[in-house]
């Protein structure tokens, strides 16, 4: 799955390389910057991947975590070990969280590398119009990778909870992905504005705040708090469900 995610920046870079650059203000954010600075391939890929592809892969990993074991019939054997159900749940969640980090980093790192290979690289232009040195720019990109990782933690908790609800992993995966998409649709409707601050997707695309000068860390904090609340609520629900569940397979 990390390979599939790595394909996104590679496809973007090759497409831009073959067909020429985009004009300013068209297409996904940062797309027009790529021809001038290949490091932006990673950013463009994150903008493209964050709404759909990343949640899909997270959904697969988190949705599979418990339900997958159940469908293979291995869950019983895991629980025979004297480790406790909560501990199994925590380990499964940590695995999903590590995958979030790996996924975001894959996109950023592969994007930067392919951009470096195919395009000239140079000082990174911030949204404010100034420029950062390449080193500083790469640090900012890593921070953005961390932001996207944090963004996906809430969804991972939802996936984990759904995974405890069923023994059919595909159901949990699909439900997780659907919830991610539905939340974004709700987030796009101005009529539901009162709901927006409560959606876990609300700050997914605010990672560009780290590319301003000076960088704005407020959204990072707010996003972390929001995701933390989702982790607590859905983690608690998952724990409640999983500790009371009769494991038959």
């Amino acid at each position: 799955m990390l390979g599939a995610l790595a394909l996104i920046p590679i496809l973007i870079a090759i497409a831009i390389r073959v067909s020429g650059g985009a004009s300013a203000g068209r297409g996904p954010a940062f797309l027009d910057q790529i021809t001038g600075n290949g490091l932006f391939v990673g950013m463009t890929a994150l903008v493209v991947a964050t709404p759909l592809f990343l949640p899909l892969t997270i959904g697969v990993v988190a949705g599979d975590s418990i339900a997958g074991e159940a469908s293979l019939g291995t869950l019983r054997y895991l629980l025979v070990a004297p480790a406790g159900r909560i501990r199994l749940l925590v380990v499964k969640y940590v695995v999903a969280a590590v995958f979030c980090a790996a996924a975001a980093l894959t996109v950023v790192v592969v994007g930067s590398l392919i951009g470096w290979a195919l395009f000239p690289i140079g000082p990174v232009t911030t949204l404010s119009g100034g420029q950062l040195t390449v080193g500083e720019g790469l640090l900012r990109f890593l921070a953005i990778g961390a932001y996207v990782t944090v963004s996906m933690l809430g969804l991972s908790a939802i996936g984990l909870f759904l995974s405890t609800m069923t023994t059919v992993p595909v159901g949990a995966m699909a439900a997780t992905a659907i919830i991610a998409v539905a939340a974004q649709i709700a987030g796009a409707l101005p009529q539901l504005e009162w709901l927006h601050p409560w959606l876990f997707t609300d700050r997914w695309l605010d990672f560009a705040d780290l590319l301003r000068s000076p960088p704005l860390w407020d959204s990072f904090g707010a996003n972390a708090l929001l995701q933390f609340a989702y982790i607590v609520v859905f983690g608690a629900l998952a724990a409640l469900r999983f500790t009371t569940k009769d494991v038959l397979s």
Partner: peptide
């Protein structure tokens, strides 16, 4: 530093 601005290359 927040007031400093130099247009980046490639900016119109």
């Amino acid at each position: 530093s927040v007031f400093a601005f130099e247009p980046a290359d490639g900016m119109t």
